[in-house]
């Protein structure tokens, strides 16, 4: 499937695909399954909201893997996937250590370990252990000024979110109506920041070595899902377009959606 003769790479990426797809479907379509199995998670809309968020991010990851399956392995995708796997292993261990022993459940941490090992083996077998920083001919690897601007905006947005998390870790929760501030939601907010951190690293890498279509596909699928869910919330009346919701988050979701679409349609012709 992954356009390589190396069976081990195929197996490792297959494992990554399975774990990411499994968590994407459970988190997004059936968050109560996880809530019932983790004593530290209460059946609240806040926890479902964050699990849905993680599910959408996982769907994007799966889309990137599928794209690599069609087009071949891509260094830039690993600059997103490897830091993300490391960060989520830290997140998982930290999260379980912070809850009482009788509420701990290490299943997800186990999967995170498998995911990290599989992705590192695939990366090492495909490209060796060295990280290639060969500079692209143009900034972001394209002459298209609009695409360059959008990618800059993406980098600034992700970096801004990481910085704002360190200034006020609870901002996402307190600024979003309907979310409750508690230990579980704070842990989830940390995970959301880890997604942004991984994207920041991947975008910085692309700034130097050129854009990656597999990461653009990853971002596109993620942003489409976020925008569709955002519109659903608007249709339900739980988020309004006239300022009652989290305006910053709404702007980021809309901007991400429009930017990803422009990037994809302007750059896809070269691939």
């Amino acid at each position: 499937m992954f356009k390589t003769d190396d069976r081990l790479i195929q197996i490792c990426l297959g494992i990554c695909y399975f774990i990411a797809a499994m968590y994407a479907m459970i988190n997004f379509f059936n968050p109560d399954y996880l809530i019932n199995r983790y004593g530290s998670l209460e059946a609240t809309d806040t926890n479902r909201w964050f699990l849905g968020w993680y599910g959408m991010m996982n769907f994007g990851f799966v889309a990137g893997l599928i794209y690599m399956g069609y087009k071949g392995l891509d260094r830039a995708f690993f600059t997103y996937a490897v830091p993300l796997a490391i960060l989520f292993l830290i997140w998982g261990i930290g999260g379980q250590m912070s809850v009482p022993e009788n509420e701990q459940n290490w299943t997800a941490v186990g999967f995170f370990v498998i995911q990290l090992v599989a992705i590192v083996i695939a990366r090492a077998r495909a490209f060796g252990m060295n990280v290639d920083f060969t500079k692209a001919e143009n900034m972001w690897g394209t002459n298209d000024k609009l695409c360059q601007t959008i990618l800059w905006l993406g980098l600034i947005t992700q970096a801004f979110f990481v910085v704002s998390y360190f200034i006020n870790p609870d901002q996402l929760i307190t600024d979003t109506p309907g979310l409750e501030l508690n230990d579980a939601s704070q842990r989830f907010a940390l995970g959301v920041m880890f997604f942004s951190l991984a994207w920041t690293i991947a975008l910085l890498y692309q700034l130097r070595t050129g854009y990656s279509m597999s990461l653009i596909v990853t971002g596109l699928i993620t942003s489409i899902m976020f925008f569709a869910v955002f519109l659903n919330f608007a249709a339900m009346g739980t988020t309004t377009l006239n300022g009652e919701g989290n305006a910053l988050l709404a702007t980021a979701i809309i901007g991400n959606f429009v930017g990803s679409l422009i990037l994809f349609f302007r750059l896809q012709g070269n691939h």
Partner: peptide, 15 residues
């Protein structure tokens, strides 16, 4: 995709 999510989510389907 929009209608899929609407029908798949309990709250959105009810709305």
């Amino acid at each position: 995709v929009f209608y899929a999510f609407m029908f798949l989510t309990e709250g959105a389907a009810t709305a």
